[in-house]
Nucleic acid binder design. Sequence first.
DNA 1: TGCCAGGCCCTCTTTAGGGCCTT
Length: 208
Amino acid sequence: MDPVVVIDFETTGLSPDMGDRATEIAAVFIRDGRIVDQYQSLMNAGVRIPSFIEHLTGISNAMVREAPPASQVMAEVADFVGDYPLVAHNASFDRKFWDAELARIGRRTPQAFACSMLVSRRVLPQAPNHKLGTLVEYAGLPVTGRYHRAQADAEMAAYLTLYLERALMERFGLQAVSHDLLGRIQRTAKTQLENCIARYGGAAAGSG
DNA sequence: TGCCAGGCCCTCTTTAGGGCCTT
């Protein structure tokens, strides 16, 4: 696969439009089928974390109070990501916070997002469900830490992305799976996966 | 511990409703 960065946010809730903010981010750089670099940091956005979220993630208000400001962390992670395309599990969620937090510091990143959840629905329709933890267990991938912490979730989403890449290569005889092909797969109706690969898989092979 | 959002997807659909997934 062409180099991509897998990101994962922990936040105070589900929607930046409702005032929710990021509390932690991790970014995992994958190249040539393996993780080659990582960035992770808690961040202080100056908002209170609901107790439910504290229990869910293990990220407390005390931890975030001592973290660097969100503006600093987002600038650092944006520099880390650069122009590389992004992957996230349920990317619509992470994209909302990525765009909202970067907008707060006057930055934007135009690169494409691919979604490991939507791709897994196409490639692994037989999985019990398509939650990250379920897919990690289903595929026999390493549990790299506590679920709902950014570093662990980003690493596991990265391993899942590599697993999906290998599954597509073996199933369809592809030489490579580009980020663009992942995007096409996630937008393809589930009955049209073969047609999508036939149309775009060849162009992807050897391009990444 | 979730009542909050929103994009995507499926079907008992398309003039709609509801489940999945993320925190």
